[in-house]
Computed example of a mutant assay.
Amino acid sequence: MSEELRHACFELARVTNWDMTPVDTAAIQTLSDSFYEIAMDQESASLNIDTALLAQAVGYLAHAHAIPPMQNDTSWFYNMLIAVFEITRPNRFVPDDKPFLKEMLYDIAESLSAC
Rank of each mutant, 00 (worst) to 15 (best):
P69N: 06
I49A: 06
F10R: 15
Y36R: 09
T16G: 01
D50F: 00
F93T: 13
P68S: 15
L53T: 05
S113M: 04
W18I: 06
W76T: 11
L31P: 01
W18S: 10
M40C: 09
W76V: 11
K98T: 12
E3C: 02
M104P: 00
E110W: 07
I87A: 13
S2R: 14
I28S: 04
P95Q: 12
R92Y: 06
P95E: 13
D50C: 09
E11Y: 08
A45E: 15
S46H: 10
I38Y: 01
N79C: 05
S75N: 12
W76C: 04
P69A: 01
K98Q: 15
P22E: 14
K98G: 04
S2K: 06
A27D: 11
H65S: 10
R89V: 02
R92E: 15
E4F: 09
Q29I: 11
N48E: 15
M104Y: 00
P69K: 12
E110H: 08
N91S: 13
D41E: 14
M20L: 14
L81G: 00
L61D: 03
A45G: 08
F93L: 15
E103Y: 06
I82R: 14
I67H: 15
T30D: 08
A39E: 04
I38R: 03
L81Y: 13
A8Y: 03
S34T: 12
M40V: 10
M70N: 07
G59P: 02
R14T: 13
A109N: 06
P22A: 12
M104H: 00
D73W: 04
S46Q: 12
M1S: 07
Y36G: 03
A45M: 07
K102Q: 15
D19H: 15
L47Q: 13
M40Q: 11
E37S: 09
T30P: 01
T51S: 12
F100A: 06
D73S: 08
D97H: 03
N17D: 07
T16K: 08
M70C: 08
D41F: 12
S44C: 06
V94P: 01
H65I: 01
T21W: 13
D41I: 06
A66W: 04
F93V: 13
D73E: 15
F35P: 08
L12K: 05
S34H: 11
V15T: 10
W76K: 07
D19L: 04
Y36T: 05
A13T: 03
F77K: 11
D50R: 05
S32C: 03
L47C: 04
Y106K: 14
M80A: 00
T16C: 12
D73G: 08
A55W: 01
H63L: 10
H65E: 07
N48I: 14
R89W: 06
I108Q: 06
L54M: 02
T74Y: 01
L5R: 02
A83L: 01
T25A: 08
W18Y: 09
F93G: 04
I87C: 04
I28G: 02
E86Y: 02
